[in-house]
Design a protein around this nucleic acid. Structure first.
Lengths: 159, 159
DNA sequence: AGTGAAAAACAATGGCG
DNA sequence: CGCCATTGTTTTTCACT
């Protein structure tokens, strides 16, 4: 097994960029975009999928139309930094569907959570009903998203 | 035009959840998951797409295999809070492919950026070469992601 | 509301230049 | 790597309930 980077040529990079924009592109549509034949797109795409470079395809849903109007970043400090505590906290965030992302960060705050909820009561219920009472958690500090300038989760394709 | 929420039944919600997990599911595979016929899945899927609830489909790429090893959250304070400054800052983040997300937040820090780069030199170049010299920017404070507990960008499907 | 079956579009191979 | 043909899937439409 290799967890190294894979070597990509210009076609691969344009394929990845195009599929990151629209994962439902047919191989024929891809062929026109990257200027390759459809059969070559099919082969290269399979290679990129099997190499794990393409992890999968996801539907991109509209949070607002689902009634999810509030996005919040929550900074969390743990009570103690023991491995058991970190483990309990990990299980907590894994259990909560409102938590989209959870990262451990450098700096003063231990963890940063990205949370999406329907409204402020739901946020209050999540913070005061789930996060704060949890034995692993010491303090939380939340910052509500007022507006979003950019939201494309697109990765920059190197080189 | 309506930017209201759309009414969804249980089938729709299970369809959305399944497609958020795997956007490449065929209507036949969907049919088995949600216990509906393939033709109904196709028809409902089209409705959800046209209603804008499904904004599109994206390939989910592996950042590490692309050589993108560093994820950073950068807090930015603007120089002044004038509309022109906010506008210049918006154009800056739109121009930088390393910036995956940019949000204006409540609290002391004005903006939070999520940034993905290949390595620390690339991060330094981005912060010291692009963000800090920009006339709209006053101060930046970056927190590097040490580990990620949860990364599924999945939205919780309400109800 | 839903189903099932036919027609049209597409994906995936293999062979050849 | 392009092109073409083949085969098997998948989507989509239509008749029907």
């Amino acid at each position: 097994m290799t967890h190294d980077t894979v070597s990509l040529d210009g076609y691969d990079r344009r394929l990845l960029a195009a599929l990151q924009d629209d994962g439902a592109l047919t191989n024929q549509a891809l062929a026109e975009i990257v200027h390759l034949s459809a059969s070559q797109c099919s082969r290269r795409r399979q290679r990129l999928e099997q190499a794990g470079l393409i992890r999968g395809y996801r539907a991109d849903l509209d949070a607002a139309k689902l009634g999810l109007t509030i996005t919040v970043y929550v900074n969390v400090m743990l009570d103690t930094h023991s491995p058991e505590n970190a483990d309990r906290f990990q299980r907590l965030v894994a259990r909560l569907p409102e938590v989209q992302e959870a990262h451990a960060l450098t700096g003063d705050m231990d963890y940063l959570l990205k949370i999406v909820v329907a409204d402020l009561p739901a946020l209050s219920e999540l913070i005061n009903g789930e996060l704060l009472p949890h034995p692993s958690v010491s303090t939380v500090k939340s910052s509500i998203v007022l507006s979003t300038l950019k939201a494309d989760q697109r990765l920059p394709i190197p080189e």
